[in-house]
């Protein structure tokens, strides 16, 4: 089963757009990343620019609204993610527990939906897409 480990670095919500990670922290993280890779569980990973360089797009009363970062209301923002393939939620937790976290950093673990996780009616709704005659070529 696939899990996304979302890294919520301490203070990243307030980080300025030019904030870059500390080389020592990166070196430690690379050791960790390598251990995920060598165990064959790592599918993908990425680090994200600070939220202050990003934007939030929402709709208000049916109209698209764009807010540039930083986002005053956000306490925690995502700083990066790992996509891993493991045999259980406990294994995902065990992997997250090995991450070299700085004080206040948080990793949130979220399982990726598989078709079998959906109730029958949702699966059925998705089933229509399987008929090639119903999809534009």
């Amino acid at each position: 089963m696939r899990f996304m480990m979302l890294m919520l670095p301490a203070g990243y919500a307030k980080a300025t757009p030019d904030t870059r990670p500390d080389p020592d922290a990166v070196a430690k993280m690379m050791v960790y990343n390598k251990s995920l890779q060598q165990a064959g569980v790592l599918l993908a990973l990425d680090g994200l620019h600070p939220a202050s360089a990003g934007a939030r797009v929402t709709t208000v009363d049916g109209k698209v609204k764009v807010n540039d970062g930083p986002f005053a209301e956000a306490k925690e923002v995502v700083g990066g993610y790992w996509m891993i393939d493991v045999s259980s939620r406990d294994e995902a937790i065990a992997w997250a527990s090995r991450c070299p976290l700085a004080a206040g950093d948080t990793i949130e673990i979220r399982q990726v939906f598989e078709m079998a996780d959906f109730p029958a009616e949702v699966q059925k709704a998705a089933d229509g897409f399987q008929d090639p005659r119903q999809t534009a070529a």
Partner: peptide
Amino acid sequence: HRTVEAVWRI
């Protein structure tokens, strides 16, 4: 017990 199993797997 489940944690031990996860550690074992790794």
